[in-house]
Amino acid sequence: MPAYEIDGYDELIAGMVQPIVTQSIIINAAAGALYARGTVLARTGFAADGTWICKIVDSAAVPAEEKVPVGVLADQEVDARTVQQRATAYVSGEFNRDALIFGGADTIATHEAALNNAKIYTKRVVK
C-alpha cells in the first residue's frame, strides 16, 4: 500500500474546519524507531535543504526542542530504526485526541496546549 493511501477511515482526522497542511520531514535514524500514523513529532533540526528533522515528542527528553510538538505523522508507518527516512507530517488541522501517539509516558494532557499553539487542534470524537 502506498504511504499516503489510507485503507478506510482511521479516526485520526477529526474535522475539516481548520485547513490540513502538510510538511515534508526526515525521521532521523538516531531516533531508532518505528513510527505509526498519528505519532506526534518534535522538530530537532533542519537538513541542508531546509527539510525538518523530527522525532517523537517526549516531555522527558533532555534537549528542549524534543519537548515541543510541531506535527503529526501522516504516513501509515515509517521505519527509521537503521536509516533516516523521508515522510510527511500534518502541521495544521483537527485531529482525534485519542488517536495521537506520544513518546515516553506522555499523554494528550501533557501536550494539548502546545499542540493547539502549533495550530494542531485536538477534538474528542464520539463513536
Rank of each mutant, 00 (worst) to 15 (best):
T39R: 00
A47F: 00
L100E: 08
Y90R: 09
I25V: 15
N116K: 07
I13Y: 03
L115H: 14
G93A: 14
L73S: 02
V70G: 11
Q18D: 08
A3C: 05
A114V: 12
H111Y: 12
V70Y: 05
P19N: 07
I101M: 13
P19S: 09
I101Y: 02
A105S: 14
L115P: 03
A118M: 08
R43T: 09
I20R: 06
S59H: 05
I6D: 05
A36L: 15
D10R: 03
A87G: 08
G93F: 13
G45K: 00
I6W: 06
G71Q: 07
L73R: 11
I53D: 04
V21M: 14
T110R: 08
T110Q: 08
D75G: 01
A33N: 03
I120D: 04
R37C: 05
R86A: 15
Q18T: 12
K55Y: 11
A33G: 09
A48W: 06
Y35W: 05
K67G: 04
T122R: 02
I20V: 12
V17S: 10
L34T: 05
E65A: 09
E112T: 14
I108S: 08
Y4G: 11
A48R: 00
T122S: 12
T88F: 14
V125F: 07
A60T: 14
A47S: 04
F102I: 13
V125G: 02
A36F: 02
I6N: 08
D79M: 00
N116G: 13
D7M: 09
V126L: 12
A30C: 02
I56E: 03
A118R: 03
Y90Q: 15
A30L: 03
Y9V: 06
I101R: 11
V57W: 03
A87M: 07
S24L: 13
R43G: 05
V78P: 01
V125E: 06
E94K: 10
A114L: 09
V72I: 15
F102T: 07
D75F: 04
G45M: 02
N117E: 15
P2C: 07
Q84Y: 04
K127R: 14
A118P: 01
R86C: 04
A47H: 00
T110P: 11
T51R: 01
E112C: 12
E66R: 11
D7F: 10
V83G: 03
V57T: 06
A64G: 02
A30K: 01
A47P: 00
S24N: 13
D10K: 03
G50E: 01
A64V: 14
R43D: 08
I6K: 13
D49R: 00
S24K: 08
Q76A: 13
L73H: 06
D79W: 03
A105D: 08
V126M: 06
G104K: 04
L41S: 11
A33Y: 00
A61Q: 00
S59L: 06
R37F: 05
T88N: 12
F46N: 13
